[in-house]
Write a protein that binds this DNA or RNA. Structure first.
Lengths: 110, 110
DNA sequence: AAAAAAGTTGAATTATATGGAAACTTTTGG
DNA sequence: CCAAAAGTTTCCATATAATTCAACTTTTTT
């Protein structure tokens, strides 16, 4: 077996991220996490649009914006307004739900 | 029994909303639904903050903004960017997750 | 019932998201 | 391989979200 009797340096994904991107809470890491989420959001728009068999131009027409705008939302996305997100997904007849969960254990003590 | 043999006009909540606010898809109704969500969002910030036993000023310090800004986010909320939402809830050590669900049946045909 | 603390509001400013137009690049269909 | 369609990018204008400051109101504490 490959793993037997082999003292290897192991690293969890979190450890790698801490090392390569920066620890949680640092501005760099926060930015990374944020950019990641924005990218996912853009991908979500794109994939739902595809699912609906719409071109960017067609989706744009539904909402009343240019295709370039849709392109920007799908790729260039740095930050968006909730309103915009809802507008887009409503046009795609998809429901957006956002929920907040707080881990009970933390903080509660202080 | 009160309901027996009594031809009453009944109305579902949705029917009432259609009638009083406007049918789904109209600008008025859309605005209503949006405003509602924004209000809920503001309430969520407030209630999580309370849960953490923080004043607006303290939460503001965590993020790096004035207490007046927090107040506005909790009440005056017309529209917000994702970034702001995430910033606030991260400071509150709460997780925001948003998901998109599309009802398979619809649209798929066209 | 004062004083202090917490929250709200309005006016003003700054930062940036939204958007259009047009040129450009990539992908797709013949 | 060529043409058309789809998607991207850049430059620019405009709208509006984010923010502060200071005065004001409401709530809490003593």
């Amino acid at each position: 077996m490959a793993t037997k009797n082999k003292k290897m340096k192991m690293m969890t994904l979190d450890q790698m991220k801490d090392k390569d991107i920066g620890k949680v809470g640092t501005p760099e890491r926060d930015k990374y996490e944020f950019d990641l989420r924005m990218e996912v959001l853009g991908d979500m728009i794109k994939s739902v649009r595809k699912e609906r068999n719409l071109t960017q131009e067609q989706l744009g027409e539904l909402i009343g914006v240019q295709k370039s705008q849709i392109s920007k939302l799908e790729r260039n996305t740095k930050n968006v307004t909730i309103e915009t997100i809802l507008k887009v997904f409503r046009a795609l007849k998809a429901n957006v739900r956002f929920s907040v969960e707080m881990n009970e254990s933390e903080f509660k003590v202080a």
